[in-house]
């Protein structure tokens, strides 16, 4: 509408590949070792929703696991340290999301911190659960808990082998191919030429050509 004849920008025609070519150049960026923003982060409203969900659900759940652990018979120093550990880690985790988002200068550092706080939360939760369970029962109960853990480990291992690993492999494979695809897109230029002769659309005549054009996978997630 804008760049064809009679349009507001008819002085900048974009009808053929040659017309478009000057705008397709990608400026080379020197490798500096600094952080480079490669994709837009999620919107602030989505981050707010996620923060709300995490603080509401995880804080309640992890407070309860901490409370159960606090009622165990381990030394009070261990209970004082590990009881609130997970909740504190989750609060730190969510705080770092926002710090990473809001601070341009230190953002990447805070983003790396998210991995640490997430790991601490996971580790603390695993300790709280296993130590509480084993502290709760006598010898027989401990054997049952151990068997349940073994069973869970076996099922988890099976799921990893049969479901998760193949899915990850397929995902990795899907990301690799057809990077050259946009280069071979000459049909677009042809179609553009025919359209510019006259402004009238040639709908049905163009359809068979379109069917022959292969669909391309996105080069990366942002595409």
């Amino acid at each position: 509408t804008c760049h064809s004849k009679g349009g507001e920008k008819e002085d900048v025609p974009l009808a053929t590949y040659e017309h478009l070519a000057p705008f397709l150049k990608v400026n080379a960026v020197a490798v500096t070792g600094d952080w480079v923003k490669v994709e837009e982060p999620i919107s602030t409203s989505k981050l707010t929703q996620s923060t709300h969900a995490h603080l509401l659900s995880f804080a309640v759940l992890f407070s309860l696991t901490g409370l159960i652990f606090a009622c165990s018979s381990y030394p009070s120093s261990v209970r004082c340290a590990l009881g609130p550990w997970v909740v504190v880690a989750v609060f730190a985790d969510v705080s770092l999301w926002w710090l990473a988002r809001l601070s341009d200068e230190w953002g990447p550092l805070f983003a790396r911190g998210v991995i640490v706080t997430g790991g601490l939360a996971g580790l603390g939760l695993a300790l709280q659960i296993t130590l509480s369970l084993f502290n709760m029962y006598g010898a027989k109960g401990k054997v049952v808990i151990a068997l349940l853990f073994l069973l869970g480990g076996a099922v988890g291992g099976l799921v990893i082998q049969s479901q998760i690993k193949p899915a990850l492999d397929a995902k990795a494979l899907a990301k690799q191919p057809e990077v050259k695809a946009p280069e071979g897109k000459q049909p677009d230029a042809k179609e553009a030429k025919t359209d510019t002769g006259k402004d009238e659309p040639k709908g049905k005549k163009d359809e068979p050509k379109g069917k022959g054009v292969a669909l391309h996978r996105p080069i990366h997630d942002f595409d």
Binding site: L61, F62, L64, T65, I68, C71, S72, S73, G122, L125, A126, Q128, I129, S132, L133, N135, M136, Y137, G138, I145, L148, G152, G156, I164
Partner: peptide, 30 residues
């Protein structure tokens, strides 16, 4: 302490702990 709790309470607490563990693990895997 946890050991002195009645058995039904222990079972509920155990199921809760295991459910939290499983839920957290599956959320992380996803």
């Amino acid at each position: 302490t946890l050991r002195e709790l009645p058995l039904p309470v222990k079972v509920v607490a155990s199921v809760f702990l295991m459910a939290v563990g499983l839920g957290y693990t599956s959320a992380m895997v996803q």
